[in-house]
Every structure is written in structure tokens, then in C-alpha cells.
Design a protein around this nucleic acid. Structure first.
Lengths: 222, 222, 222, 222
DNA sequence: TATGAATGAGTGTTCATTCAT
DNA sequence: AATGAATGAACACTCATTCAT
């Protein structure tokens, strides 16, 4: 019985190894430019073996996306206590994002791969049956937070929370795609992070209820 | 004397015909999925003939982009009177956009093709010498309008206008890319248009100077 | 009647003009790299018009070759007096070559084009019915000179004059092809000319009858 | 244990099979006229498979050349004893050439392919870093032999050995190219071989020091 | 389980040649 | 006589996917 467990474990390890190799290639060369050949070579496996673990390139890429999204979700939970306000949750999102993905890599993976597979992502799914439960979970979580902000009188009550969610995520997506175009070393610069924060802040202000004190809208520590 | 003119005209027509076929294919299948072969077949020409009119795929795509951008610029001018305020200019942008591209196609072309040729568009150019003067003109025009809004005390004086331009254009880009994913008939629905307007409105509010009366920020007729 | 003559003359002029354009292109870019398109563009004519004068690329190239060969023959005659010895004739060949084609161009044309059309030229024709009478004339003239040298006891009586002719011409061909690979400005250098002379001299010595005084074999002025 | 060896062997065989198919095509149609498609078809493989073994056409052709050159070198060594005189070495060259390539094919391959890839060959390389070590080795070996003949007082001390090498090799090249133009069955005739020998002999005489006894210059057994 | 080997269907691009006007 | 326009047939090269072992 131990033997089959080991088998299972090894299989999982190899799976993750392939995913990691693919991730690295995506980060260094961009999704558009990598082939199954590249991934297999990097993983020191044959192409056929890669196909043993992922039955198509699309599935492999989706899995990479999902894994990154799962990582993001798990990490965000750490920051998200129950009973917290909407704005506090948004701060947590940002903070978690900032702390976890300060180097941007996870986000680049999520958005770049996602957009490559399914250009125009954020408008679709969010309700339909999806192959990407984790990515969807992020969307849903964000949506709930926005609803809460509305309920708490911070956001404009007329704000369409579905639209707002897609909008927010799209912005991340675009910023990240741009960042992915930069030289690998430049990505880590606080400049990018700052730019993303500014955009996030602008959007939050745009979401706000009329007349609300702007100091309540800060997404970073007051 | 009329003969060479007719030739010229016919050549222009054929040129535009090819562009239109390419446009249609892009709209129905997405830029990523079309080949010169496809374009030629749709135009009922041989590939070599297409190359007679456009010396490379890149040039053809850029021309499609530029043509759409030119159309947008021309139309915007009609709405844009000299000596107008920044907010009025923004309204014009929106109005021109709404009237001219109510069916979205031009915008889909511009953003989709542009992003395909040059992924991560909004971060680049905007100053460097470019093969796409018309597209760049839109970017520059937008930036100037944002600067004007700042100067007129409508937008937050701390707003980075370059960032804001990229942000705004990116939002259009993303919305459009999303729209491009929809079934061709759904695209024409006022729903999309309304969504874009809402997003535009949110961004403008996000750009606003603190405390400014929101009624001044309306992008549609008051 | 004057009118048709003028027509004829104009036609000839245009013909030669096309040939000259092709020549220039060959000299500057090499035979391998020129297309009918290039030739037509250089001649400021349409491709179809070029085909009016030359029914295929092969025929055009052959004509270029033939014209260059004709030029060489005409010029050589000036140096070749009747009743002259074989060695004097060889000197004339060299001298004519040196004076006329000091810049190598004609030779580059002849050999490069010829080899392109018909790789391995000098072994063939020389007896069979040929499309290239002028090129063949050079071969024949050379052969007669070699025969004469044999008859005069300067060359080895066992020398196969047909072989010797092909050999000699081949060497010119190769040297010229090499020269054609150089930068246009380097070609004019006396270095090339000197190299060709040395090779010519070596071959003449190789042709010589055993024991003959080497001073009799000089191909340049004694 | 035997399994990977068999694999290796089979791969080598397939590799050689492709090379042989390419060789045959080159011999029957000339380098200029063969495409990767042709080679694949002849080998009864798909184009993609050919690319599996040779990553570009250039590399495949170079390999063909190198293999032929390697064969020539190996064979020549058998004839070349250390401490041998320059003339003996030349005899060996000829003898090796005659015995190994009596049917000319190897030489046709070497010179034709080489000239195709790198028109004007003999002038270049011979010193610069090269992708074709075996071909270069032949050039170098020939040059050393010529130098030795000069040192031994057999060749004219004023002979430029670099020039002489290029000259000699060019002659082989041309003769071989000519031979390649003949009908496949005619190539095997002793006539060609004899012709090449005569030319080789003429050149050696041309290289000789003045007054040297011609019997010392025989390239075949006295 | 793992893989080496194979491939079909493209991909953008070029060019000698033809033909209606 | 002249040409603008058109094209078929190539070309080198790529890649996701399959399959026998």
C-alpha cells in the first residue's frame, strides 16, 4: 500500500515540476513564445511524457493559471479575517497582493496565460460552468467585497458589482501584461508596484459613493 | 485621361477590399487565428496578389489599425471645437466613439490588432517614432485632454497624466477585447455600450480632484 | 520607310537598355540575387515589357553573356594581327583582356552568368549546336591558338588542345567568380589582375614543351 | 542495455539514410534544384522528420560536404606516410583520390555543395574559423604539401602557395562541377578520370621550378 | 510509466511567367 | 507597344499532437 502512495506522490511531484518549468519559461519568454517542446526540454522529459500528465497544451496552461490563482487565494485568506469591513478587505487584497506577489510573477502567470488562452477573460465566466474554479473564486471573492463596500455605504449604491469586478480584474490584467513586457529585472522595481497601486486607488475612488471622505478610501495604511 | 484614374480607383478599391476582408476575418475569428492564406481566400485572390498590395502581414495589419484610428480621429474632430474645456473634450471623445463605433467594430479592430502586433501596447510609444501615426495621435490627444482637465481643476492635480492615459486606453482595450469575444450579433447590443460608458464614468470619477461636484464629471449630456 | 527604321532602332535601343540594366544589377548584386522584377524596375519598365523583348529570364541572361563575349572578341581582334605566332596571340589575349577588362566587369558577366545558367560550362558545347555562338567563338579561338603553339613547338605536342582550352577558360571562370564575390571597389585593384596573370602564366608553363626556355613563355612583354 | 544502443544505431542509420538520399538527389539533379521537401520525399519521411535530424538545410548540406571530405581525408592518410616528400604526397593525393573517388561522386558532392553554400569558395576560409573543419583540413593539407615541394626545390620558389592551393582546388572544383553535368553513367568513364589527371599534371608542371627534370613531376607511378 | 520518433497542416514570403486591356 | 494585375508553385521552417515500443 505504501508503494502506490509513493507512486501517487511521485506523480504529483513530476506534475508540479512540469508546471514549474512551464511557469519559468512563461515568465522569461512570454506565453506566446513557448512550445510544448520547450517545456519538455526544460523539464528534462520527453514531449510525450508531458502529454501523459497534461493531455493538451491548453489544459496545461489552464492548470498553471489555476495553481497561481489557488496560491493567491490561499495567501489572501491569511489577511482576511471574518467580520472585517469591505474596505479593510480591499486593503487586504492589496496588501496580500503586494506582499505575496511583490515580484509580480504569480500575477503575470495568471493574467498572461489566461489572456492567451482566452483573450478577453474577465467578461466571461463568473457564472457559467468553468474549467477554472480558482480563477473564478478570485472573481467571486472580489465581487463580494465590492458588494460589502456598497452595503457599508462606501461605494456608490448604483455601482454594478459584476461590472466593477470585471473592471478591477481587467485593470490588474492589463497592468500585469504590460509589466510582463518589461525586462525581467525591471519588473521587480517598486515603480511597477506603485503604478498598480495608483491605478487601484483611482478605481476605488471611481467606485466611491458621492461625497464620501477620500481618506476612507485609502487602500494602503492610513 | 480617365483611364489611369479608373486604374487608380480600381486599385484603391481592391486595396480596401482586401483590408475589409481582413477586417471581417479579424472580427469573426480574432487576429490570432488568421493567416495571409485566409485573407487571400476570403478576398478570392491568390496570396501573391495580396502581397502585391501589402508587402507583409505586419504592414497589412498595421494599415487596418491605422485606417480604423484615422476614422476615429476624423469623426472626433467633428465633435471637438477649439477652445473647448477638457471635460467637454472627454464628452466629445465619448460621444464620437459612441456615435461612430456604436457597433464596436472599429474599436475591436484597433485594440485587438494593435495588441496582437505589439502586445502590451499602452506602455510603449506615445513618444517614440512610430509606424502608426494615427494610433499614436489618439494616445497623444487623450493625454492632452487629461492635462487640460488637470489644469482646469477638474482632475486631481497629482494625477500622472501619462499613467492616466495608458490606464484609460487600456480600459478601452480590455473592454473591446472582451466584446470581441462575444457572438457577433451580441456585440451590437446597447448593453456593451452602456457598460463601456459606465467604466469610462468610473475612471473619470477616479481621476477627479477631491471634493469636486460629481455633476461636473458626467461624460454624457447633463 | 523611315518610320519603320526608327521603330527598329528604338526597339534595339530599348533592348540594349534592358540588357545594360541587368548587367549593372548582376555586377552589383550577383546573378543569383536578381529577379525579373529587379531588372524591370531598374529599366523603369514593367515586367511584361521586359518579357516582350526577352521571352524568358534564361534567354535574357544568355543574351547578356553573348553580348559581353562579342565585345571581348571584337576587342581581341584589334590586337590580333594575321601571321602572328601562337605565343604572340596568347599575349594578345592577355593584353586584350587586361586592357579591355581591366575592371573585370565583362568577364564577371560572361562567367558568372554563364555558370549560373549552365553550371559547369566549359566542358560542354565547343562542338555541339549552341545558343551561344559568341561564347563558343572565344572557346574556338583559344583552341586554335593553342594548336598553333603546339605546331610551333612551344607547347607539349601531346597536349590535348580541347582539354587545354576548357582548362584555361575554366581557370578564368573560377578566378572571375571569386573576384565577383569581392566588394565592388576591391575588384578594380591590380591585385586581382596580378593574380589572374600569375595563374595564366602557371598554366602556360604547364602547357609547355619539355625543356623549352621559360623566357619564351612569358605572357607579358619580355 | 542493448536497447539504447540499438536506438542509437537506428538513429544513426536513419541519419545516414537521409544524408544518402540527399546525396543521390544532389548527384542526379544538382544542388541548386533540390528542396527539403524533395529530400524528405526521397527518404520517405515527412519534412518535419528530416528537420528532426538536421536543424536546417544549410546544416544538412554542410554535413554532406563534411562527410565526403572526412572520407577523403581518411583515405588519403592511408597513402600518406610520415617523412614523405612533397611530390610523394601529391602522388598520394592523386592516388587516394583516384582510388577512393574513381566514380567521382564524393568529389562532386564536396565541390558542388560547397560552392552552392558558399559561392566562390576557394578564396575564402583556409584560415578563418569555420563550420567545415574537414573541408578546411583538405585545403590546409594541400597548402602544406605545396610548401614542402617548394622547400624541396621541386616547385618554383616564387610560387605563392596560397594562390597555388586555391588554384589547384579550384581546378578540381571546376572539373568536378563539369563532370556533375554529365549523364550519370558517363561520369564513371575513365575518360573523366584521365582528364582530371592530365589537368593535375599540367598544373604541377606549371608550379615546377625552372629547369627541373619533368620525370620528377609525374603524379602517377613512374 | 516513459519516450523517441514521426508527422500533417500550416506559416509568411518569393518569383518567373501570363494575360486582358 | 506597353503594362498593371494576377497567380501557381515553391520555399525553408514550426508545432501540437500521436503512437509503437
Amino acid at each position: 500500500m505504501g508503494i502506490s502512495e509513493r507512486r501517487e506522490r511521485e506523480k504529483d511531484e513530476r506534475r508540479r515540476m512540469i508546471l514549474n518549468c512551464a511557469r519559468e519559461l512563461i515568465l522569461s519568454q512570454g506565453v506566446q513564445n513557448i512550445s510544448m517542446e520547450d517545456i519538455a526540454r526544460k523539464a528534462e522529459l520527453s514531449k510525450a511524457t508531458v502529454y501523459l500528465y497534461f493531455s493538451s497544451k491548453e489544459i496545461l496552461l489552464n492548470e498553471i493559471c489555476e495553481e497561481a490563482a489557488r496560491g493567491f487565494i490561499d495567501q489572501s485568506k491569511l489577511f482576511l479575517e471574518p467580520g472585517v469591513t469591505g474596505m479593510a478587505a480591499l486593503k487586504c487584497f492589496w496588501s496580500g497582493y503586494e506582499k505575496l506577489f511583490g515580484n509580480l510573477d504569480e500575477m503575470i502567470i495568471i493574467f498572461q496565460v489566461r489572456n492567451f488562452m482566452n483573450p478577453g477573460l474577465p467578461l466571461i465566466s463568473l457564472d457559467e460552468r468553468s474549467e477554472s474554479p480558482n480563477v473564478d473564486a478570485i472573481l467571486n471573492s472580489m465581487r463580494e467585497t465590492i458588494d460589502q463596500c456598497k452595503a457599508e455605504g462606501v461605494f456608490d449604491p448604483n455601482l454594478d458589482s459584476l461590472l466593477a469586478t470585471r473592471f478591477l480584474l481587467s485593470m490588474f490584467s492589463v497592468t500585469v501584461e504590460n509589466a510582463a513586457r518589461m525586462r525581467t529585472e525591471d519588473r521587480k522595481s517598486p515603480f511597477i508596484m506603485n503604478e498598480m497601486k495608483n491605478i487601484f486607488q483611482i478605481i476605488v475612488r471611481g467606485f466611491a459613493r458621492e461625497g464620501i471622505d477620500r481618506s476612507l478610501l485609502n487602500i494602503t495604511e492610513s
